[in-house]
């Protein structure tokens, strides 16, 4: 029995994802042969896929791009490799902040970072270092942690899950860290529900300012992107 248009619509995405079984794929093809409407729709998706894949070519970066990037990498003599200057100053800034925030709060930050950070992902391997060497952990965790939290609602969701489990620990630390939160934006939200994210981010915020792009102005800017 031939597939109906409705059946075809039901398997459309699986088919287009390239994950439909061979036998069902054959049935879809059989339907398309005798149904101009479905055929046109699939032709449209095919056209979309091909245009997106190949046409037109995007403008290309000029030939000096790679050299410019290499030239702007932190340098130790003629190589960028060690980047000592950058890292040391990052560390110094971090520890200055961490100490200012009180050590327990900083420890809480690392603790959360480890818990919240997904087990997979290209940053996965830095996690063990958090336990072994706190100093290295700073450079390893700062960027991914900020990346992880920054503006993603997923981060807030993960945080929501943790909130229940960790409420007790948080309470202990919020008091110490509160002055950062109050200086920051979300001051009207005083409860631990909202401040937790701020508390977690605060020590990194300063260090990673470039990625936040000095977004100092209107709070409503934050609302523009939604997942």
């Amino acid at each position: 029995m031939l597939m109906t248009c409705r059946h075809v619509a039901q398997v459309r995405d699986v088919y287009l994802d390239g994950e439909l079984s061979p036998s069902l794929t054959a049935e879809v093809h059989a339907h398309l042969l005798q149904c101009p409407e479905c055929q046109e729709q699939f032709e449209m998706f095919r056209a979309c896929g091909e245009v997106i894949a190949k046409d037109p070519p995007e403008p290309r970066l000029d030939s000096g791009f790679a050299s410019r990037v290499v030239a702007s990498l932190p340098k130790a003599n003629s190589t960028f490799g060690t980047g000592l200057q950058t890292r040391r100053s990052l560390r110094q800034r971090f520890w200055r902040l961490a100490i200012g925030t009180s050590v327990p709060a900083a420890a809480a930050v690392l603790f959360f970072a480890v818990l919240i950070w997904p087990s997979g992902g290209p940053y996965g391997q830095v996690l063990p270092a958090v336990y072994e060497k706190p100093a290295d952990a700073v450079q390893g965790v700062v960027t991914p942690t900020l990346n992880a939290f920054e503006e993603t609602q997923d981060a807030v969701k993960s945080l929501g899950k943790l909130r229940g489990i960790l409420a007790a620990d948080v309470q202990k630390n919020v008091g110490d860290a509160r002055h950062y939160v109050d200086e920051g934006e979300g001051a009207e939200n005083d409860g631990p529900e909202v401040t937790l994210l701020d508390v977690l981010l605060q020590p990194f915020r300063d260090v990673l300012q470039p990625i936040e792009e000095q977004d100092t102005e209107s709070p409503d800017e934050e609302k523009i992107i939604r997942f």
């Binding site: 791009f65 990037v69 702007s72 290209p122 940053y123 830095v126 960027t143």
Partner: peptide
């Protein structure tokens, strides 16, 4: 953005996981 992305990638290259 591309320039920034490469810079960030290289600055954190020590943490690169070869599984990816």
């Amino acid at each position: 953005i591309c320039q920034d992305a490469f810079l960030r990638a290289f600055q954190a290259l020590d943490n690169f996981d070869f599984a990816y």
